[in-house]
Simulated scan of single mutants.
Amino acid sequence: MHIGVVDRAPLQKPNELVPSRYAVRIGELEVLVISDGVLPLPTKMLGHNAELADRTAWLDEMFLPREAFDWSLNVALVRSGAQTILIDAGLGFDPDLNLPRAGQLIMRLEAAGVDLASVTDIVLTHMHMDHVGGLIVAGVKERLRPDLRIHVATAEVEFWKSPDFSHTAMPQGFPDALKSAATRFAEEYAGQIQTFEDEYEVAPGVTVQRTGGHTPGHSVVRLASGGDRLTFAGDAVFTVGFDHPDWHNGFEHDPEEAARVRVRLLRELAANGEQLVATHLPFPSVGRVAVEGETFRWVPAFWDY
């Protein structure tokens, strides 16, 4: 897969013993899922409305630690004709949060031979720090093309002018960091942000749709070409959401609406059989959804070498 190849791409860091990119073809669309690293968070964030015993039982069944574990951070790069579209931009770097294993996107794009100047469009599922932070890392904006288009829902931009965290359950420091990152992003890229209301075709076969829930302007990106389909679901779906779609994630600004969005999306994906990628599913997070009684089942794709 060749997307804006640079003359000499650096290798991945020698201590990286796992792959950090995975290519998928959706009809004529080239898709590269890229890991931005991992984000260690308390397990309570998976379902702060659930009983401790229920959360513990689920974690034990999944062979996950009970106190905290690493959330994957996935980003996607899509080539549609002459356009190269980056879906979300990773965490970037916040010195106050001490997250050294996240914010790897720029280095890993370089390792994949992707020149930042080749990116024509960026689609943001929402403006949380782990989705816009990569754009406010020192030196990144100067490497992006001046006619870059950044697509984000109008409701999302408006929300971050005066965000409401009253229904979230985040670790200390995160609300301030989220607000700071969103504000800085909106200021630095004001001239390149292109807003949409509910749905917008970014490129042939690439459509962004607002869902709301997780944040007021949270959106998913639908890819369709040659009968193949894939949805990049952003933060609409978390790993626990298949077994417990009614559990509230700590970052959700409207948890009840987020649960409704999650169930609608999972039902749709189960019915049409299209592939799913989401920000916080285990890398590379490519798979499908099956109905399992009143809940759902995640069916990871077999890796295609």
Rank of each mutant, 00 (worst) to 15 (best):
H2A: 14
D7K: 15
A9H: 09
P10W: 11
L17E: 08
P19V: 14
Y22H: 02
Y22R: 01
A23E: 13
S35L: 10
D36M: 02
P42V: 02
M45H: 07
H48K: 06
W58Y: 14
W58S: 03
D60W: 08
P65A: 12
W71I: 04
S72P: 08
L77N: 04
L77D: 04
A82S: 14
G92F: 03
L97A: 05
P100I: 13
R101P: 03
G103E: 14
G103S: 14
L105G: 01
L124T: 05
H131C: 08
H131G: 05
G133S: 11
G134C: 09
K141F: 03
R143N: 13
P146Q: 15
D147R: 12
D164C: 07
H167Y: 08
M170R: 12
G173Q: 10
R184F: 08
R184H: 11
E188Q: 13
Y189Q: 14
E197M: 12
V202G: 04
G205K: 05
T215N: 07
R229M: 12
L230W: 00
A233T: 02
G234M: 01
A236D: 08
F242P: 02
W247E: 03
W247R: 03
V263Y: 05
V263E: 08
V263G: 05
G273S: 10
V277M: 03
V286W: 00
G287E: 02
E294V: 12
W298Q: 05
V299D: 02
A301M: 07
Y305L: 09
